[in-house]
Design a binder for these strands. Sequence first.
DNA 1: TCCAACAGATAAACCGGTTCATCATAAAGT
DNA 2: ACTTTATGATGAACCGGTTTATCTGTTGGA
Lengths: 349, 349
Amino acid sequence: MSVTIRDVAKLAGTSPTAVSATLNGSTGKSIRVSAETRERIFSAAAQLGYAPSQIAKSLATGKTKTLGLLLPYADAFVDQNPFCSEVMSGIMHEAVDRHYNITLFTATSGMSYDQIAMLVDSRIEGVLLVMPPAEGSIYTKCERRKIPYVSILRRPQPGAWTVNADDQLGGELAAKHLYELGHRRVAVLRGSDDITTSEPRCAGFCSIYEQAGIEPRIIPAGFGWRHGLLAMKHLLAGDPKDHPTAIFAANDLCAEGAMRAAKEAGLSVPEDLAVIGYDDTWFASMVQPALTTVNMPIAAMGRLAAKNLIDRLEGNLEVEQDAVLPISLTIRHSCGHHAKSSDPSVTTA
Amino acid sequence: MSVTIRDVAKLAGTSPTAVSATLNGSTGKSIRVSAETRERIFSAAAQLGYAPSQIAKSLATGKTKTLGLLLPYADAFVDQNPFCSEVMSGIMHEAVDRHYNITLFTATSGMSYDQIAMLVDSRIEGVLLVMPPAEGSIYTKCERRKIPYVSILRRPQPGAWTVNADDQLGGELAAKHLYELGHRRVAVLRGSDDITTSEPRCAGFCSIYEQAGIEPRIIPAGFGWRHGLLAMKHLLAGDPKDHPTAIFAANDLCAEGAMRAAKEAGLSVPEDLAVIGYDDTWFASMVQPALTTVNMPIAAMGRLAAKNLIDRLEGNLEVEQDAVLPISLTIRHSCGHHAKSSDPSVTTA
DNA sequence: TCCAACAGATAAACCGGTTCATCATAAAGT
DNA sequence: ACTTTATGATGAACCGGTTTATCTGTTGGA
């Protein structure tokens, strides 16, 4: 069938041991190969088109160089949120650089995280979790099997590694921006409670306004476009005197939904209503008006999570357990301030 | 270290052979196990928490139950095009149902398809290619290694399996719609030539108009938002008498870019300019005005490609070599016709 | 001259499953 | 009574690598 290390050894007139050591760059141990034998091995391997069986290698060494990637489970969320694609992109960059494979665990609809945990088998050396649930059998499974995992956007836990952005600060930056623009009646469209970022973002936002003696209205919305739309409609259904002049949305999608509802109610953004988003995905710069939004270094977070996981797997124990990446505010047009057309920050293929 | 099949056999007081046969549901061959031994094996396995090594299993059987998934290479494209997420979702559904793993090969920036082909190793039983290039070492590599592959959106080739939508028909549907609405000066913003769908869509569109003696203008654009924006600006820079009254864009992203350019030039959509998109991703229903667009069953295409690949791997030879999925037209607001607010076809998490 | 150290090389065991070939023993057929 | 067939079970080989332990010369130092 396929060409094995013994075939190469036979053609080169030497032993499998020598071939293995040579092709792996001589482990330096007691296996010594003369320059001339090495030559014969290389040419034999090339002649036969030898490619080592990664499976046999894994069985012998116990290493698979394969990571599992668990994306959020709700179909609509995966499909619709550009966040996932961006974080995936960052992860792939690091994985390719470090010669690791990524196996996809997407919990599809009708499939719980617990069922997904079943997919973690001996082929997986480590797991990357993107916006995972607070609790779940996936964690106990990994711990029982001693499989290390790194979570992206999960509240830090003792004994677990995480990569987060500074959500509290993100909320604060948004609040400061709106406050400085003169907004005094503001509302938060808060993300769903099962994602851990919702709370600190909201808390950070409120803390700034509370220092000024103002209590923002908090509407439980969610991370979808429709959530923003419905929450905004709900707000606008109340007494016009209570209508907020500014909105801090759960993310960019939610912000767009809110803008849509406002426009349908005859309000214009940013003149009648300022809207600020979160994430700064490509989507934010494409909607109209382009969103002022809190920027998370999404791809960098994915990359760092992959890096930290691989570092740990390779024995580097100095990995930062709870990394927090910096946050910034990207100012575009949805809160007024300054105007420009065809936002150049949009990059296309 | 970990518990092996021999440990289970020892505890159950039987042989590895019996354990293997029992746990795999008795292959029915000459290995026979009595009901009472079976019981002991099950309880021993449960007691030890035995989980078979998939690696050892793969080495012994030659099957890995792992598929490679190759997504398009330009970062911006992957990140920004909802198409990829949707096709991935369909693929994952089938893979999970059939108990197959998916290994991700995303050609990141600065990495060619040829380099990606290097990642295909013995762990991969089959490959799924999404919008692959016309030529490349990936194909020769798969053929040399006898690894079957199924391409999504690639021109049918002898000896290669594909899943496509009826691009020609898609173009025709778009053209008929615009023609019936009275548009006689129309332009095609054509996708880039390296994606095989560009040509038949354009051809289908033109064929309808040519029957009426009209030659549509064809602008080489691309599949990105910016491509649509620039192409439209270029069109609007010409003599106003030549301005088209309707646009057939390469995809939804491109269509939005074109709409943006039109709006910036003071035109309104659909009153002054009709725009029709392609793909019908979630994005299409979210932009304003919501896009009339050619609907591709994207997730279904992903799912079918995975199904066909797995069927072939499992020896089903009746797999349709070049599947073509049906196309339809989703009418929203960007070509006028009828109006409605908050398009209900938008689904959110 | 003798022994230690080392370069070069390899046979054999091992990783953890699957599967082929073989072997008892009991039941059934002639 | 003797062969055939079915049941229950297992030892050993195998998949394709890595790694340990061992072996032979050759060189250098005392």
